[in-house]
Simulated assay, not measured.
Amino acid sequence: MNTSHPGNVGATARAMKVMGFDDLVLVRPRFADVLQQEETLAFASGATEVLERARVVDSLAEALDGVQFLVGTAMTPRDFGPPCSAPRPLFEGLAARAPRPSLGLVFGSERFGMSNEDVYRCHALVSIPTHPDYGSLNLAQAVQLLAYEWRQALGGFPVQARTKPPELADAQAVQGLLTHWQQALVDIGFLDPAAPKKLMPRLNQLVNRAGLQSEELHILRGIARAMQKAAAQDKSPC
């Protein structure tokens, strides 16, 4: 409502897109061309389709088409009006309803928040829990937090895993590494082949516990080569 900063509009579009939402309605923004301004597009960071779908209207009433449950954002408690709660319990309750109502979130202007008249139109209010000594949230930050909470109430998105799990080194390659390390340790004088004790079996157990990946094994082979090269240089005549 009455947003005055183009950057906030762009950042809001970005916040919505990453949570899978695209229905943005601006009520009496300060600049009529805010959706096309350079700052808006820069802060949208690629979420241009949200801006392209966005509507600009003159009143909150015009923005409510298709909205069945309207939630306002209010940091300051009101003496009169709809109940206020934290976002998570409210959204979880709405998501569990059958049928689930279509949700609309109303954000006030950056400077003045929501007017009492607009608050009274809402079915409920949410207040984002913040540190009691400092609760100042940028408009786009508030949109991001509430969009995240609503998406989580709807089931969320799966965490993107690696497309290909790392490849573990096979036992033959591990034994090749240990043979290489044994010779390198002899070359630098760390291992006495006449009295090896249990050094190599212990190293064998160590690498087995580590579960070396193939790339890691190659790194250790490279270290062994560097050790042998350094030992050879030390033994070479000046």
Rank of each mutant, 00 (worst) to 15 (best):
R111N: 09
G93V: 11
G7E: 05
I188Q: 02
Q37N: 08
F80E: 14
H131Q: 08
V50E: 00
H123M: 04
G104A: 11
R30N: 05
H5V: 11
L217D: 00
G211H: 09
P83I: 06
T130A: 13
P77C: 09
A96Q: 10
T3I: 14
V9P: 01
S85L: 08
G104P: 13
G72A: 15
Q228A: 11
E215W: 05
Q228Y: 04
F91E: 12
N8I: 10
R111Y: 07
Q160P: 02
H180Q: 13
F157S: 14
D192M: 01
V119Q: 01
I219K: 00
A161Y: 10
R202H: 10
A140V: 07
M19Y: 08
I128M: 09
S236W: 12
S4P: 02
L220C: 05
A61F: 11
A153G: 14
G104I: 11
G46I: 08
R111Q: 11
T76N: 13
D118Y: 06
V186K: 12
L139N: 12
A32T: 09
P77T: 06
E149A: 13
M200A: 00
Q228M: 14
F112S: 07
L125K: 00
K164A: 13
L105P: 07
E38W: 04
D170F: 01
L26K: 15
L41K: 15
V106H: 11
L24D: 04
T48W: 01
F157E: 05
P237K: 09
G108E: 11
Q36R: 15
Q36L: 12
P82W: 04
K198G: 00
V9A: 02
G93E: 14
I223K: 03
V174G: 01
Q160G: 06
G211E: 05
Q213P: 03
G176W: 01
S127W: 03
C238G: 10
P6Q: 01
Q152T: 10
L199T: 05
P129L: 02
R97L: 13
A95Q: 13
T12F: 02
A232K: 14
T179A: 12
P237G: 07
P165D: 02
G108I: 07
P132S: 04
T76W: 09
Q205M: 08
S85R: 08
W150T: 13
L168R: 06
M200S: 09
A47R: 03
L125T: 02
F43C: 14
I188N: 12
Q213W: 04
R28A: 15
I188L: 06
L125W: 01
D133P: 04
L191C: 01
M227A: 07
A98Y: 02
S45M: 13
H180S: 07
F80I: 03
A54Q: 08
R53T: 00
R221Y: 05
P165K: 07
L185G: 04
L217K: 05
G176S: 06
V18M: 09
Y134C: 10
N204W: 14
V9G: 00
R151D: 10
D33K: 02
V207P: 00
K17V: 05
Q182S: 06
L220H: 04
D79R: 12
F107D: 10
H5N: 08
A171M: 05
E216K: 01
L220K: 06
A161R: 15
A226S: 12
L145G: 09
S127Q: 11
R97Y: 03
P129T: 00
